[in-house]
């Protein structure tokens, strides 16, 4: 068994985070956090509620600005990006929100068209239609194209949100608690879909979760985020055998 505190190195990591720190008032959330994500890797960030997991991926996508540190995504420094550069980066990095964040006032089709129209304005309507149907077919919900989000179940909404994330064919997908609030069967289905997508599109993923079934199914490597720092890293099998008192409760 190999459990180490070192960050694995890779020739071409798609995400490299160094000394990341962010605080809200006097509450320090991330304190010198470090990680790398290799190309094609599925990395789970595991930690207690409120430990800063969601804050971490919001920093990666540029929704939050850290107080200190460096975040390199696809070789570009996020903390130094202006809005146009952030938009360009976001076209290559998908984000699945915990609450799905589907636009209530739009149909499923309009929800999926929205990022396409915004990032790739030169597309014809025919091309947009084809891409929408392809994304919906990938998540098995082609028949919902003209429904409103309010007409869908929780699991279907999650799949549609995933289809919206996939529609730009991102190189990296950031998942914010993808199975929270779902029943075990639906949760399993979403986890399978995530693995399927990673295999089909060769994406790299950062998955924030504390659903251990999802973690076991989707992770190639796990980072334990404790007290704002990377506490341990290793595979599911490695960490599940850990005797570390902080790590053990997650795997029991």
């Amino acid at each position: 068994m190999k459990i180490d505190k070192d960050i694995p190195t890779d020739d071409a990591p798609v995400i490299r985070i160094r000394d990341l720190s962010i605080a809200f008032g006097s509450h320090v959330v991330l304190d010198g956090f470090e990680m790398t994500l290799a190309k094609g890797e599925d990395l789970v960030v595991l930690g207690k509620s409120g430990s800063g997991k969601s804050v971490l991926i919001k920093c990666i996508i540029g929704l939050l600005t850290p107080d200190r540190g460096s975040i390199q995504v696809l070789n570009d420094e996020v903390t130094e990006m202006d809005h146009p550069a952030l938009d360009q980066m976001r076209a290559r990095v998908g984000f699945l929100f915990q609450s799905n964040a589907l636009y209530d006032s739009m149909t499923v089709r309009e929800n999926l068209e929205f990022p396409l129209r915004r990032h790739w304005i030169q597309l014809s309507q025919g091309e947009v239609d084809d891409m929408v149907m392809e994304a919906l077919t990938n998540v098995g919900l082609a028949e919902t194209v003209d429904l409103m989000p309010s007409e869908l179940s929780g699991g279907m909404r999650k799949r549609i949100a995933l289809a919206r994330t996939l529609i730009l064919k991102p190189e990296i997908i950031l998942y914010d608690e993808p199975t929270t609030g779902l029943d075990p069967i639906t949760s399993r289905g979403i986890s399978d879909l995530m693995v399927e997508i990673a295999d089909k599109y060769k994406t790299s993923s950062v998955i924030i979760s504390h659903d251990m079934r999802c973690v076991e199914r989707t992770s190639e490597r796990i980072i334990m985020l404790i007290d704002g720092k990377c506490h341990l890293t290793g595979s599911y099998a490695e960490l599940s055998r850990s005797k570390d008192p902080v790590v053990m409760p997650f795997f029991q």
């Binding site: 938009d87 076209a91 929100f97 799905n100 636009y103 209530d104 929205f114 915004r118």
Partner: peptide, 21 residues
């Protein structure tokens, strides 16, 4: 109510991620 609801359900963040101000 509409913008408040969009805010708490992260729709505003989703819009930003989708390349929209």
């Amino acid at each position: 109510a509409e913008l408040g609801s969009m805010n708490v359900t992260e729709q505003i963040d989703a819009m930003e991620v989708s390349g929209t101000n």
